[in-house]
Design a protein around this nucleic acid. Structure first.
Length: 190
DNA sequence: GTTTGGATTACT
DNA sequence: GTAATCCAAACA
């Protein structure tokens, strides 16, 4: 079952936390979300809204639940979900999923055999799911959909940590992970 | 028109 | 430890 359409109307931080344990479906592939980070449109120096006018325009011109796909370091696409809450707008960065269906296809796209490494990072999962430049501005919640989230019966224990890979506002504990998961991204925090 | 700085990954 | 590689924003 798909998650409720008002899921993306929460505030970014609680939405990011609530997304852990949901199933992300994209074409023939799917996986359980095991790692996210929250970025706020206001008072968050690490968010794109702080430095990029285009990110603020994006929030203005799109509905909650829209995909914000960003190319970073010139080679990896990172997938975000636009959140528009009463307490503030922002984005959820999808950092890692646990592969569920379409694993063979993911292995083919990634050119890697280890299932643990297939989607254990924001740049990796976009390759595995074939998400890229063309998907910027598409919706997770409105038809026609390429990708969406489903409810699961996962009883996930969620832990939080500091965000990683950024240079500003590092201290906010806005990274959320499935406890003891083998499928989250590496670097510090493990 | 040129410079700069990334929400990363894979390989040595 | 570090090369790979692109875009938007900022500066001149």
């Amino acid at each position: 079952m798909q998650i409720s359409s008002n899921f993306f109307d929460k505030d970014p931080v609680s939405a990011a936390k609530a997304l852990i344990g949901k199933r992300l479906v994209c074409g023939e592939c799917s996986g359980i979300v095991v790692e996210t980070e929250a970025y706020a449109a206001e008072n968050d120096k690490a968010a794109h809204t702080f430095t990029k006018p285009s990110a603020r325009d994006f929030i203005k011109n799109h509905n909650a639940g829209t995909a914000y796909i960003y190319l970073n370091y010139g080679m990896y696409w990172l997938a975000n979900v636009l959140i528009k809450g009463k307490k503030g707008n922002g984005f959820i960065l999808i950092r890692a999923i646990r592969p569920d269906k379409g694993i063979d296809l993911m292995i083919k796209r990634r050119g890697m055999k280890k299932i643990k490494d297939l989607c254990s990072g924001p740049g990796k999962l976009t390759i595995a799911l074939n998400i890229g430049r063309d998907d910027h501005g598409k919706s997770f919640s409105e038809n026609p959909k390429k990708f969406w989230f489903e409810e699961t019966k996962e009883k996930t224990i969620v832990t939080s940590d500091k965000r990683i890979g950024i240079s500003r506002s590092k201290s906010l504990p806005w990274r959320f992970l499935e406890k003891d998961s083998e499928f989250v991204s590496k670097k510090k925090g493990r």
